[in-house]
């Protein structure tokens, strides 16, 4: 009898299995359960009313609004271009394709702080174009455009990355048939390719959303930290925490954590759905061949 793997025929767990399960509970409890419990405990330390009051404070509301605006803008821009890039990389083979794939991946390996710094090199006061743009009245660094650029950089690959494997699997028979029937590019993309890839697309969009809402390092470098003006939710959490406003900081943290976890939770639901639909698709593809 295997000491470590469970066997369906035996009802009793072996000592080794029990040890393993106990160790798992200990690790998960200490490392993964305590932190979220602490966030909510600290947020509610002075009661629900105090927690709610601190997230409806004018600076807090402005941080929430800025985070939602930046997230929406980043998701719209990166999804639109991400879909086109996935289409390009999935449906065509051309010289230099590998280079594009590698370039799209780069932002994942970049430290958040570096993702902010690069924009200051371009648009900061000592950057290449910062002063020239300032003279004509355009401010990018330490203002919302800089925050958006930093968010765009860190969430850049997610839509393409989730769409590409699926769109490659689809091949291009359906698209070629649609072309022969006279459909335009946009018609094919909207009517043929994307409906098939909808769960992957949603999953990529949600990943982009979660990451955009929570981005701290990159945004922190380019934001300038002006409360009520250029502070997103993560930056406002830092300001509150460093100002010893623990309840307010953790209330904001709890709200942001709920938003991020809801987004990620939705994503796992859609991914489960995608996996369920996959075998069916493979069947139809096999039947058609």
């Amino acid at each position: 009898m295997n000491a470590l793997a469970s066997s369906p025929s035996s009802d009793r767990r072996s000592p080794a299995e029990i040890t393993l399960i106990a160790a798992t509970y200990a690790i998960v409890g200490l490392m993964l359960v305590l932190p979220p419990v602490l966030v909510f405990t600290e947020a509610l330390r002075s009661g629900l009313a105090a927690a709610l009051a601190s997230i409806t404070d004018p600076d807090a509301l402005s941080a929430i609004r800025l985070t939602l605006e930046m997230t929406a803008a980043a998701v719209i821009i990166n999804t639109s271009f991400g879909v086109l890039a996935a289409w390009l990389l999935a449906k065509y083979r051309f010289p230099g394709r590998g280079v594009l794939v590698a370039l799209i991946e780069i932002p994942i390996s970049v430290s958040p702080v570096v993702a902010g710094l690069v924009w200051l090199l371009l648009f900061g006061t000592q950057g290449w174009w910062g002063e020239a743009l300032n003279r004509i009245g355009v401010t990018i660094a330490f203002a919302t455009p800089g925050i958006l650029l930093a968010t765009l950089f860190v969430t850049f690959p997610f839509v393409t990355r989730t769409l590409l494997p699926l769109m490659e699997q689809q091949g291009r028979d359906a698209e070629e048939a649609a072309t022969l029937l006279g459909a335009s590019f946009w018609r094919i993309l909207w009517g043929v390719t994307l409906p098939e890839a909808r769960w992957a697309l949603l999953s990529g969009v949600l990943l982009t959303t979660a990451r955009a809402m929570g981005e701290f390092g990159a945004v922190s470098v380019v934001s300038g930290h002006i409360p009520g003006l250029t502070e997103t939710m993560p930056l406002h959490i830092e300001t509150l925490y460093n100002g010893y406003q623990s309840v307010a900081a953790f209330s904001m943290a709890a709200l942001l954590a709920i938003m991020a976890m809801a987004t990620v939770g939705m994503r796992s639901l859609f991914e489960a759905r995608m996996r369920r639909e996959e075998p069916r698709k493979a069947e139809t593809a096999g039947g058609g061949a």
């Binding site: 993964l32 932190p35 929570g214 390092g217 993560p234 954590a257 990620v264």
Partner: peptide
């Protein structure tokens, strides 16, 4: 689901927590 929690929680929240 809990194992992916560190991916899901924004870093600033992780930091102060």
């Amino acid at each position: 689901a809990l194992i992916d929690l560190p991916f899901a929680i924004p870093t600033a929240v992780t930091g102060i927590t």
